[in-house]
Design a protein around this nucleic acid. Sequence first.
DNA 1: TATGAATGAGCTTTCATTCAT
DNA 2: AATGAATGAAAGCTCATTCAT
Lengths: 216, 216, 216, 216
Amino acid sequence: MTESEQQAEKSKRLPRAVREKQILDAAVTVFARHGYHPASMDEVSEVAGVSKPMIYSYLGSKEDLFLQCIRREANRLIEAVRTGIDVDVAADMQLWTGLRAFYGFVAEHRASWTVLHQQALAVGEKFAAEVTALRSHAIEMVTKLVVSEGSRKGLGEQAEFSGEGLSAALVGAAEALADWWLDHPDLSPGVLASWLMNLTWLGFNDLVQGQVWRPS
Amino acid sequence: MTESEQQAEKSKRLPRAVREKQILDAAVTVFARHGYHPASMDEVSEVAGVSKPMIYSYLGSKEDLFLQCIRREANRLIEAVRTGIDVDVAADMQLWTGLRAFYGFVAEHRASWTVLHQQALAVGEKFAAEVTALRSHAIEMVTKLVVSEGSRKGLGEQAEFSGEGLSAALVGAAEALADWWLDHPDLSPGVLASWLMNLTWLGFNDLVQGQVWRPS
Amino acid sequence: MTESEQQAEKSKRLPRAVREKQILDAAVTVFARHGYHPASMDEVSEVAGVSKPMIYSYLGSKEDLFLQCIRREANRLIEAVRTGIDVDVAADMQLWTGLRAFYGFVAEHRASWTVLHQQALAVGEKFAAEVTALRSHAIEMVTKLVVSEGSRKGLGEQAEFSGEGLSAALVGAAEALADWWLDHPDLSPGVLASWLMNLTWLGFNDLVQGQVWRPS
Amino acid sequence: MTESEQQAEKSKRLPRAVREKQILDAAVTVFARHGYHPASMDEVSEVAGVSKPMIYSYLGSKEDLFLQCIRREANRLIEAVRTGIDVDVAADMQLWTGLRAFYGFVAEHRASWTVLHQQALAVGEKFAAEVTALRSHAIEMVTKLVVSEGSRKGLGEQAEFSGEGLSAALVGAAEALADWWLDHPDLSPGVLASWLMNLTWLGFNDLVQGQVWRPS
DNA sequence: TATGAATGAGCTTTCATTCAT
DNA sequence: AATGAATGAAAGCTCATTCAT
């Protein structure tokens, strides 16, 4: 939704739930545009088409507002990825579809991703904790996939590797690639997901030997 | 260097270069502690043991100051990594030693890394550009390694993969793991580097088949 | 009446007079609790169990509301004191019973007294005038007593003393003692009245000579 | 000092102590004029001829500022009364000279008295405590006088009277008379002190019998 | 060189008050 | 009759920045 459309929606005497959505939408837009600190409540109120006292009345302080932005967007992201995963297919396919869904979300919700990834971490521990929880959630999901795949192949977990550490690196790589993508558009979510699969599932070594991973 | 040591250094009539170093050290400390916007020039001047007019006289505005922090720390990081790499060994070993040097730097310069990675990206395009340049530098180095390894094995670059994209993902994974590390200390730089090597050089697939990469 | 009882009374479609009483009761409570300026109309409406527009519709602005609080409580106080005085007894007994009635009112209506004495004077001339009128009323009553006692003893008013001035001091002493009482409970209205009688009717000089005034 | 004189003093680059005095003077003026809550820091800064950041830098928050006003004026009042008392004369004369000094102070520092007596009590417990301490100080002084006079006449303290209670009433009467005076000028401090002496030292009873207390 | 003194500008937040239903 | 929704206006406070010494 563009900002002008958001403003076009403004009218008078709307029910509280609608106003809250307007305000959160505007807040995500503005926080993504300037970052938390430089963003002014004035701009949020302007973009939302709502006076400042309404914001404070409905959503609370600037911190409260930011926190609720983060939580809403985090839940949306989780939902998008979960919906994108087919739990009945092989581990690598689950990873691939999950990644594709992730990049699909980022593509459609640039502002959400910016707020979640770039801003929330920089503002303070209180907010970073929310994002850290989100990330932990993702890491956990990936860890399960890897471990289950290992078990299927008859291998116990190798003590010298932390499944969690490897998963953290994978998730981090996925996030970093999402950021990189913001500066290099014109690639589809599927392509990005593919790269990550080849890098992490096969590894450089296999790649240079001519092997390629492809969604089956 | 601790903050008290920094303050202990304050005295009068010092040469300009010394003052500038004091100020930049203090600024990095303060920017890492609070982030760019909440950091106040008052606190910088206090930590540096230098009056505010001196800061403005020597290093310019708050933005200028931050920019110079970023640049100095970026150069230090580059230097540390370059020094850590032995260009005469195999590609995988170069990657490994480079990563180890990177994590070594992060371990020793927490504040520098925080400013570079968490703050600079969130403040504005002007600063993000500096970090992006730094990252591009890293990506370029990795790309060379991968491509040369591929050539050595007689393979041309495969069209469907962007060596740059893969490298971006690897670099991103390395950065993400550095962040993750901040919350999970008690691991040596070598261990982290090892994880990344196994994840990206071998890939999950090899790992679950029992293969392990080890520095030769 | 406790606050919860006040709220329990809230319901719909009550006659105007009842609503106005609810509102004034709540207002006195809230103004006594926080003082005029920090008190918010929101809190008044909440305590009264009545929406803000009703308050404005029935009793006007915040100033109007406060004014009506003051007037109602002032009239209550006057009524309580007048009822407590037996006009057929001697002057000193009238004074004593009047004082006792005054302290009885203060004991039972803490909030009223706080609003009348501490808040109304501090807010502005418009409100102070109401309290000043109340006080003048009291001074006048006391003056009559003193003058009539003087006449009974065959003495004209002595030019060098203003009966009004002396009465003002007595009334002031009575008020001050009421305030002091708020911080030193556990004394009965009769005891306080007794002190004042001994101080002002007899005077320190008589007291130190062993004389004591007692209600006859 | 008039407000215009205060402003006339404004100039640039003054030492901190001078600025602090300017600001406190202005604050007392403004707090007396409007009361604590309606008084704005903008007006204080305007009257002081100093920008708001200086006020916050030197004196702290609005509450801090108010507190320091109260404390400064309380100390001034105490000093004025102490200086006015000759401790080598009889008890009644000490009381009289003390009262005269008190009214002299009030006459010369109207704003100080208004802030101390009308505003500080109404704003909140934190401030009222300061004034209560001041009043306790006065009560204590009076109590000593009365008790010493009783001892001199060979009488022990009478159990049924609290010397403190009587003194509180006297002090309250003195304060009340000061307030009353603000609305009835054209009387000298000596006259007011005289009234109080006759009321409390002799008492109504003696007065109506034709006795009069006069400074010896 | 070095700094205490000083401020313009802007931010978050709150409140008395009213409209539209 | 009664109220949830809405806001203009203003207050307290802070900060990057500079001047005068």
